[in-house]
Design a protein around this nucleic acid. Structure first.
Lengths: 113, 113
DNA sequence: CGGTGCTATCGTGCTCCAACGATGAAGCGC
DNA sequence: GCGCTTCATCGTTGGAGCACGATAGCACCG
């Protein structure tokens, strides 16, 4: 029942300064995609969970949300497709964690408004 | 055909420091609502238009977007309901402009991630 | 190798969204 | 008052999104 984990995941702080433009048609599309992914309370909650736990938890997310496992899995898929989170397989479980680069990118795009 | 306008609209910079919390269940809901409103390319484009033009334009937005007038009107409604923009009636036309307070609020919420 | 636990995916119903054309309401100019 | 312009709203259609239960795919333990 113990959950140690937090070993093979969430490694790279990745200090790259991001080189893409902050506005323009592509940036508009990108911002819309990211915001659409965040545009659901359950997804915001998941993001907050992954940010707060510095260690990346896995299916414990399901227990935190009042939703069925399949529904949570779908939300995770949406977030992953948007590039906001990452899922590393750790044996039988999957370890999700935020993608700091995308999060920074989002903050930059929002800040550019 | 001239558009002077930019008189009775977009006035208050409103230097109030915003007193609501940056996280919690309510903040989650709020962030989701705001992001959902932004989560469409056309809406991002409208926001950018309103930010760039310091003067708040009106139905010129329709001419900037490759969409029907009714569709643009709906997007404007979504943004207005989210509190991101404001629409002041100026005679026969309507003058839309961003709501700086909400925009700041959004930046704070995103920054809190 | 067979079971068990963890996730992902499938299929389904329902609701909401996005786009359009057509129609209606309000203000201005003549 | 009449017509014109400008927006909003209505009604419709097609396509996503959200939720669930049921099912299938793996990795591990015994």
């Amino acid at each position: 029942m113990k959950r140690e984990a937090a070993e093979a995941c969430c490694p790279p702080p990745a200090g790259k300064p991001d080189l893409r433009p902050i506005e323009g048609a592509e940036a508009d599309e990108e911002l819309a995609t990211l915001c659409k992914a965040i545009g659901h309370p359950a997804r915001v909650q998941i993001l907050r969970l992954l940010v707060s736990k510095e260690a990346c938890i896995c299916g414990d997310i399901v227990e935190e949300l009042p939703l069925a496992q399949s529904t949570v899995s779908q939300h995770l898929k949406v977030l992953k497709e948007a590039g906001l989170i990452r899922g590393d397989v750790d044996g039988p479980r999957v370890c999700y964690c935020i993608e700091p680069r995308t999060l920074r990118r989002l903050k930059a795009l929002i800040g550019g408004l």
